[in-house]
Design a protein around this nucleic acid. Structure first.
Lengths: 198, 198, 198, 198
DNA sequence: CATGAATGAGGTTTCATTCAT
DNA sequence: GATGAATGAAACCTCATTCAT
């Protein structure tokens, strides 16, 4: 598909995407604030001005990245809204969320590590809201506080787990499964606890 | 009150402390990179140059903050090294760590949210290492992967929990207890799981 | 209506005209330097590149505007050159100039308010020269200095008057007449003064 | 007074003033927008950053210039408010205003030629208001429209006169007197006209 | 203990302009 | 007759840092 390159650099039409890719890479490596547009441009072998043709501001590049991520999560939320509020549904939410995360590890890591930068973005807020919507779907509002923590912990560990266990022995897919298992456990316990306290 | 100088060690002047306080506040609010020395100086109603009397560089301010935090954690590690490697010891580690966190919430939040900035600090590395040392003390090296995740999750949730549940109903002290409870649970399970797999 | 092309001179397309209209509007509102081609293009809902099809440079747009204005004034000068140098002729010059100004208020206001930008344009120089030619026709070279000032003042007030009295009560046409009256008075006095000194 | 130079450039303490001087010079020559801070800095043999130590923004330099000018005019207004509203007072206002203008020719010329840039400044508005206050003091509110124009014309010609007659033969002081004479005449006529129309 | 003045490097952004299609 | 993509130059501004006083 993108194989008709070779003639000359093979730009055209995909520059926007290339900018996003490089930007994400650098943002993850060095943080948003520490990454300058000059750097991004140099990596792409274009001028800074070219970036501004595709994105109105530096922040806009970030927003673009967020939007790409938002979609799968939105779809997950949409799907979840139509399901019965059973434990099995909750497990499926975790499974699907885990899959979504696997596909956008970089961005998630970036969000995790650059919350200070992300916080003041409108899109950052949107993202946080989505997160809370997901949390709503896992936890029971009148559960014990510890059970609330369990649900939150399940979600949060899925974010963090991927890159903190980075240097662990096993391969990524096994790691992902282990994390999902723990998260599922936590939610299960939270739901069981429900009966005890309610 | 400020006359007990001369003995040296006694907080000579208090500007240094005030700088750290204001800096931490701003670093937490806006992130490290986004906070300029000008801002810090203005908040303190001194000139930028005055900051340089007390700290050699901007990074030095950060390092100062870290050091204040490192001490309690170092003490905890020191203490733990001398304890038997029992489940009860692990629980006590969590208890003490939870207490330490409560006393330095701001700084922990800062670290959590500015990992990108912190990563390239020597001190940042030190801090991360300490974290791993703690993790070593909770987990059993040959446990199942999921159990490793549980231990990591316990530790990590303690960091994150404080400010993500920020707007939750209950008061901070109750929240802290709930988080500690979940963490303890996780470590307990991890240790039990041990038998099943090892 | 737009079919009378081919004869040439007949407004070929009307984009060129639209560009000039929008450009003048923005130049007047914000000044020449502060108005970017991007803005002009956006107001017209075309791309910047389209502007370059019609005008070779930004300055060319300005030159185009000037030319449209130059014609009536040139005609006035041409006409005046053939008239006897009487007071009545001078009055008629003022009358005609006042009429010309009424038809190009925007552009005149622009020139008045952007002299700094206009000064270094070749066309700007041309325009200033025209102004001086007009002044030559009103004043007598050996008149008293005060009378020279009167003639200059007459001309200048006509320029400025239109938009400085903008918020005055009366309607534009009455205002124009009042300004013309004062200008005529000034020139009359200048010519009477002639006898006293010459 | 500033003669202790010779040792080494002789800056210190007067940089702020020097910035304003150079800035005004360049603003007058090339216009506000066309004058870059780089240029100003180069003329002063300092870095751009030095400008920013003394003025928070480019606009601030302009505002500084305006303030220096505002004072004399404010004093004039203050003085005029306490005088009886006679023709003689009006003449004295013109005399004093003429003197004030002579002392700040550059700035006035700048304002005249950069209205587009000045318009959006808060300080620009202030200045315009002062002008109107002065106009109020010269004209009678119920006079004929032509007489209003005369008063405005008197004021306005004083602004413009100085530099438009620049290349006229006579020396500046004589020019100033001639302009003042015409302005005085115009105001006198405006006040006489008063009786005829009412 | 602290300030006032300045610097050098670099940041984001905007602009007029070009050119292949 | 117009667009999409890009460029080179330069704009304004901010930052961490230094140093004489």
């Amino acid at each position: 598909m993108t194989s008709s390159e070779g003639t000359r650099g093979g730009r055209r039409g995909n520059t926007r995407q290339r900018i996003q890719d490089v930007a994400l890479e650098l943002f993850v490596q060095q943080g948003y604030e520490k990454t300058s547009l000059r750097e991004i441009a140099e990596h792409l072998d274009v001028t800074k001005a070219a970036l501004y043709y595709h994105f109105k501001t530096k922040e806009d590049i970030l927003i673009g990245l967020f939007e790409d991520l938002a979609r799968p999560v939105d779809e997950l939320i949409e799907w979840a809204k139509e399901q019965p509020r059973t434990l099995e549904t909750k497990h499926e939410i975790l499974r699907r969320y885990s899959a979504a995360l696997a596909g956008a590890e970089g961005l998630f890591r970036f969000i995790q590590e650059n919350q200070a930068a992300v916080r003041e973005l409108r899109t950052g807020e949107d993202f946080k809201e989505r997160m809370l919507r997901l949390l709503e779907m896992l936890r029971e509002p009148d559960a014990a506080l510890a059970d609330q923590v369990r649900c939150f912990s399940a979600l949060f560990s899925m974010h963090a787990g991927m890159f903190v266990l980075r240097d662990a022995e096993s391969d990524p897919e096994e790691k992902r499964k282990a994390i999902l298992e723990v998260a599922t456990d936590l939610v299960t316990q939270a739901n069981a606890g429900q009966g005890e306290k309610g």
